[in-house]
């Protein structure tokens, strides 16, 4: 009986150990490409939302504290800074809209020094196909271009604001509008820190 048990245990342990070995090999082979893919994805999003730049914004960063999350842990926002000829031309950072129709929506918000939106990009979302996922379309993202906290009411029209809600996707629209507005506010409150040269990286 014990001998049987030992045999089963040894067999299973061996199989698990072999599988672990194999996985560690595959992991080490894919680690670099995966890192590179994620970096490319980030650079792509940054180039889409920032004004023209000639530095490498993905390595020129400054980390801000932006309130606390539900668990009371501080929320960190990494600001990527774009420079042209050494001059600060804009920053981009990821805002999480927690109030999407199905889960969080991650938005990359690109801002210019004049406190206006340069462009936005939707990074991840799980909104309804055909309705809420219109937030990915260019014409929707263009609504936010060149708008700042002054002169724009950052609410959807249904709530009395300036933004048309997408048909059948008011919640998605409201989530994005709210996230971008929060991003603008964050920039306004931390402008000096974000523009300070050399910090972070």
């Amino acid at each position: 009986m014990f001998k049987d048990m030992a045999r089963l245990l040894i067999a299973l342990t061996l199989i698990a150990a072999l599988s672990g070995l194999l996985l560690s090999l595959v992991e080490s082979a894919t680690r670099e490409p995966i890192k590179e893919q994620r970096r490319l994805q980030m650079v792509k999003a940054l180039s889409a939302v920032l004004p023209e730049f000639d530095n490498a914004p993905d390595t020129d960063t400054v980390t801000l504290q932006n309130g606390v999350n539900k668990k009371g842990e501080p929320v960190e926002v990494i600001c990527y800074r774009a420079r042209k000829d050494g001059k600060f031309v804009g920053t981009a950072f990821k805002m999480i809209a927690p109030d999407g129709y199905s889960g969080n929506i991650a938005v990359m918000v690109g801002l210019r020094p004049d406190e206006q939106v340069n462009a936005i990009e939707i990074l991840t979302h799980a909104e309804t196909p055909g309705l809420g996922d219109k937030i990915e379309e260019g014409w929707f993202k263009d609504w936010f271009k060149d708008k700042g906290l002054d002169g724009t009411d950052w609410r959807v029209k249904k709530d009395g604001g300036d933004f048309d809600q997408l048909t059948g996707a008011t919640i998605s629209t409201r989530a994005i509008v709210g996230a971008v507005a929060k991003g603008l506010q964050l920039y306004k409150d931390n402008q000096a820190k974000i523009q300070a040269a050399g910090e972070g990286s």
Binding site: L12, I15, A16, S19, L22, V26, T30
Partner: peptide, 20 residues
Amino acid sequence: PAFIIIIATFVTIVQLVMEA
């Protein structure tokens, strides 16, 4: 359990390779 370990190993490989 042995089958599941084997299957899970290959699934993880597929996932890593696809992500890369």
